[in-house]
Design a protein around this nucleic acid. Structure first.
Lengths: 153, 153
DNA sequence: ATTGAAATCATTAGCGA
DNA sequence: TCGCTAATGATTTCAAT
């Protein structure tokens, strides 16, 4: 994995368009890029096979659904060896949406989404602090995401 | 904004399916959920109007395109009042894909994607440290994202 | 990479619970 | 009000070039 892949400017344009709108019709993309719809279809299939396009998803305003608080949580483990056990447990928690192995201060940094500060408190005490392999945590509470965009490849 | 919205179980099922695959045909969703295609269409339109569905995007394996390193960066500002000026500058940088206002230690936490550690170094010295409103930074380098999922609403 | 044809889908209007 | 059906135009998909 992580082998570099050769993509040309047409592939790049396709990726850029689909990052903005995953449901854009292939024929519309074709008109914008200046190739045929069949070509778009072939290119997208190739990008999927190559594992460059992994999937697609809608963007949801979770705040409108009552989950407005994002918290970044740095985790210290008792023993670095337990990291996979910890990840297994974290994976099952609904509040956790992302997790990163990191170098430096923390073994892991996780991103969680919760309804409010009370919910966060309950989550921290009732779920995170129940994992005995976790020694301590540091919380960075965010009330607003100010930038959210796709990488310009 | 951030008003709560009443969504029923059909809306939830639609959101869940589209989070897994934004290009899923409405008729396929209709068959899975047990309603007509027209109903899916109406519901999706309503969810968009309500601002719950904001957009859609493909998921790209950026590591395969040579941008394999994610860094979370905590920023300390010289003066908290300058935060909007800083955000404006950050917004223009290709490497920065997300940014959060946070309480506590940092004024901002940003997520960046870079090719490798050298690229990160150049970015830090050549771009971040050029912003005079930023006092100091702390870096959390991630070589692997181990969890990435959608919130279970 | 394009073309063209067949299957499938999106979209809308009108009907009915 | 909400969901369904039916009809049309657009799109996806694939084989042949």
């Amino acid at each position: 994995m992580a082998e570099k892949y050769e993509i040309d400017s047409t592939d790049k344009k396709i990726i850029k368009l689909l990052e903005k709108d995953a449901r854009m019709p292939f024929l519309e993309m074709a008109r914008k890029i200046g190739v045929s719809g069949g070509t778009i279809h072939q290119r997208v299939e190739k990008l999927k096979e190559a594992g460059i396009i992994i999937g697609s998803s809608i963007k949801v305003d979770y705040a409108k659904l009552g989950h407005g608080v994002v918290v970044l949580l740095g985790l210290h483990l008792v023993n670095a060896r337990d990291i996979h056990k910890v990840i297994d447990k974290l994976e099952k928690m609904d509040e956790i949406v992302e997790a990163y192995y990191t170098t430096g201060d923390y073994a892991l940094i996780v991103k969680i989404m919760v309804k409010d500060i009370n919910h966060f408190h309950e989550f921290l005490i009732g779920k995170i602090q129940m994992i005995k392999e976790i020694q301590s945590t540091e919380s960075f509470i965010s009330l607003k995401q100010v930038i959210d965009k796709s990488l310009n490849v």
